[in-house]
């Protein structure tokens, strides 16, 4: 064994660029094979925050998350829309295959209530995913949510118009519309250096399940 290998074996804190350790924890396939390939663990990391930057509300959020939401509901976990930009439409959700009995729409009156209930929900093991559309979002708030979601083991999904430079989110994505197609760019995924962009599908064709 050469000295370098010896050193690496002895000091687990030493970081090796380019080579990623097998990430710990549970993962949920995103349902988009190309995206799974870009994310460490091959899917959404359960018990983590996911930050998604969208240029306009209503741009393919559900299309991106739907396979994961369906999978969570099949595990009899609940999916929560917290203060969405528009009212969720029951016929559309049922057509997409979602179970309304496990879907909840919460409209809190104030930002304080929003964060309070998001934290409560994320902390709950029966809650599979909490989608949040905050107007503004401080990093300290996200840290609190991150702690809550670690306890609950679900997914906390925060949709933002503008993102801060740093964030405790495990995965940071950006939704884009370009050349008639919807794109998802992976800006950061904890435990991986990979960055990249995948195509979600044509924008003028509704998502198929």
């Amino acid at each position: 064994m050469n000295p370098l290998e010896q050193l690496l074996a002895d000091c687990p804190t030493l970081f090796r660029g380019g080579q990623t350790a097998a990430p710990a924890g549970a993962f949920l396939p995103t349902g988009h094979a190309e995206l799974d390939a870009l994310l460490p663990g091959g899917g959404w990391p359960l018990g983590s925050l996911i930050e998604i930057q969208t240029p306009a509300p209503g741009l393919a959020e559900i299309r991106l998350l739907l396979p994961a939401l369906l999978r969570l509901q099949r595990e009899s976990r609940h999916v929560v829309w917290t203060d969405p930009p528009f009212p969720p439409y029951a016929p559309g959700l049922v057509q997409a295959g979602l179970d309304l009995a496990r879907a909840l729409w919460i409209a809190p009156a104030t930002p304080a209530d929003l964060w309070w209930c998001a934290e409560k929900l994320l902390r709950h093991p029966a809650c599979g995913a909490v989608m949040i559309w905050p107007a503004r979002c401080a990093e300290t708030v996200l840290r609190r949510l991150q702690l809550a979601v670690e306890a609950g083991g679900g997914l906390g999904i925060v949709f933002l118009r503008q993102v801060a430079a740093t964030s405790p989110a495990a995965v940071r994505l950006q939704l884009e519309y370009r050349d008639e197609h919807l794109w998802v760019a992976v800006r950061r995924a904890r435990g991986s250096w990979k960055q990249g962009r995948i195509r979600l599908g044509r924008a003028d064709v509704p998502a198929q399940t």
Partner: peptide
């Protein structure tokens, strides 16, 4: 599973209690 559902309704109580009856919306066709 059953125990988890019971907990869930307790959580909804707690949310309803603070946010108000109208804030929690269960969708239906």
């Amino acid at each position: 599973h059953a125990a988890r559902q019971l907990d869930w309704s307790q959580l909804l109580d707690e949310l309803r209690n603070r946010l108000g009856e109208d804030a929690l919306r269960i969708l239906a066709l």
